[in-house]
Design a protein around this nucleic acid. Structure first.
Lengths: 342, 342
DNA sequence: CTGGGTAGTGGGAGCGCTCCCAAACTAGCG
DNA sequence: CGCTAGTTTGGGAGCGCTCCCACTACCCAG
């Protein structure tokens, strides 16, 4: 038994028009919310639509109009393993919520190889999406430029440099470093080290800047030996922590630029018999599940990840619509979540 | 400067045909890999495609043919919070990899409200996807049946009951419980408790069954007081653990049906002064990040999550193609990962 | 040499929409 | 009461593809 309509075929716009006793154009206008329709016609069409259970065929729409009602969210897979993974899920959640409200499709694209990257670029060239959301782009990633050259609206999560030309939504990474250090200094820590992310990523450089600003604000002198670069992985955090302890056995606090690295640092601290927070205080970034489950639970700087997803989607939708009310480049605030590690 | 073609317009199949000196039909045949094309024509068309940088317009394809080359992955949002979240990311990863190989789109749909659910059903009715992947369906979820009624190919992750009619890919949850208990018994534990998931979920009942089978296999007598139901959340695990300790202070091991619940149990154990594993051994399920970061690191039963994603996608693609070589209902093995908690 | 294949091909007829132009109506004004 | 200006409407012309039918070559058996 077909749900409705004859022979299982979905009703078409033409059938709606026939039933409402109007022309195709009028039905189309009603569906697309054009103001140039009389109330009488609008009512008749609405009723016909309801009676027939009509749902517009998107393929036909995409072909006739020049839009697809779909947006791609692109995640370079190399990053996916590095970052705390729930990050992406939260971004997705935010994006999805916002797109659902606008009745747009979310197309998820993980790119993990040259081949897939190429395929995706082809895909873009084929005008298959109305816009693109790019997550965790490296400083040397050409993808945003490719997208721009095709003049497809795009919004980044994070930026590649201070003077990012493409629209982006970022969190206040400098502020994150600053507030972490401020907190540590407040608790009387004086020899505060940091474990950074890979310094070819702008986000990592920002957090390091914040760290330095925090030291300055607290009247502490910087010491380059207290800075160790890692790569956002747990193993990297562990190695960096070992190096730091070797170079500066007197350090009494560490600001790790991610929870995952903090977890690695925690291991190294335990291996060398340091207690947290008694001997060394520890602060991370992300406020992820890892932070809550560490022993002791990790003090961490929270980023509004889901919110970033929402905002990204909103900005993108505006770029697509051509109504750029909101600014195209946004930095969202972060917030220190104090637990037992510092 | 346009990338290629005149006036920035993407080249069409018609233009390819003109350039290759053949008809539209022939080009279409080449693109779709029909065998009924001479090598000469094939070569000419291939060259023309390369020269023009032609990429087929999917909307036109979808409209003309009756397929979309897109597959929806549906995640009911209520679950997203409960399950260890990286789970979904791993599923997505597997699905995405497999779909990319088949050059299909992945459409991600989070459903978090009645409204969104309804919208999605409409969407399905509009024949907007070739198939559907459903993750973490509750026993009473009607969605799989809706999909089947629309005769859209579908594959579930997990099943709703023993006699699931829809195609599914599941992991061996009974085996998971069994091997966890076997391990505990092997280490000399005698009073083994379990914290289950919500028993209206088949996965939870399976793990409980496995637990019972494990006890029997080890020659231990079951004791219903050693069974506490929870809901896959940390807080639930904690509460369940407290109840268990109150009822049976003499228990010496716990099998928690998820890592997250194990983490909750861990808290309750610490609160009551129990050491892990000395006083109480603990085993979880999922082998998630949480497990690795617990103190002590949690012994856990690993499910091949990404692999499940891959297999789901593969089965779905076969259902779509109509070539059902592989069985439609698969159960993948699990594996015990021994750490320090048991 | 003929008839009956069989590979290979071209192109008409749509798929269901949006765009847009011209027709049909309305109202307002001199 | 005719004329202009504005509003509302119908429907033709595509969008770029696939499907499929008809047609041409060519081959082989009779």
């Amino acid at each position: 038994m077909a749900v409705n309509g004859r022979q299982g075929g979905r009703p078409t716009l033409e059938e709606v028009a026939a039933r409402a006793g109007v022309g195709r154009g009028t039905v189309s206008r009603v569906i697309n919310g054009s103001p140039r329709v009389s109330d009488r016609a609008k009512a008749a069409v609405s009723r016909a639509i309801a009676e027939l259970g009509y749902v517009p065929n998107r393929a036909a729409r995409a072909l006739a109009g020049a839009r697809t009602d779909a947006v791609a969210l692109v995640i370079p897979e190399t990053e996916a393993r590095l970052f705390a993974e729930p990050y992406f899920l939260d971004i997705i959640r935010g994006v999805s919520a916002e797109l659902a409200d606008a009745d747009k499709q979310l197309l998820l694209t993980l790119i993990r190889s040259r081949k897939e990257r190429q395929r995706f670029e082809q895909y873009l060239a084929a005008q298959r999406v109305d816009g693109v959301l790019l997550v965790s782009v490296h400083a040397d990633d050409p993808l945003p430029d490719v997208v721009r050259e095709l003049s497809i609206p795009a919004v980044l999560n994070g930026r590649r440099s201070e003077s990012e030309p493409v629209a982006y939504v970022d969190s206040d990474n400098v502020g994150a470093g600053r507030s972490a250090v401020a907190h540590l200094a407040e608790r009387g820590r004086r020899r505060i080290a940091t474990i950074t992310g890979p310094l070819d990523m702008y986000v990592a450089r920002c957090r390091l800047d914040g760290y330095r600003q925090g030291l300055a604000a607290a009247g502490l002198v910087g010491d380059e030996r207290l800075v160790a670069a890692a790569d956002f992985t747990e193993e990297g955090g562990r190695r960096a922590m070992r190096d730091l302890l070797e170079r500066c056995p007197d350090l009494d606090a560490v600001f790790a630029a991610s929870d995952v690295m903090a977890a690695g640092a925690r291991v190294a601290l335990r291996e060398t018999g340091r207690r947290v927070p008694d001997d060394v205080a520890l602060v991370g970034v992300d406020d992820s599940a890892v932070a809550r489950h560490m022993d002791p639970p990790l003090t961490s700087v929270r980023q509004p990840i889901e919110e970033m997803g929402r905002v990204m989607a909103r900005v993108l939708l505006q770029e697509i619509a051509g109504t750029e009310a909101e600014p195209r480049q946004l930095v969202l605030p972060t917030e220190l979540v104090v637990r037992d590690s510092a």
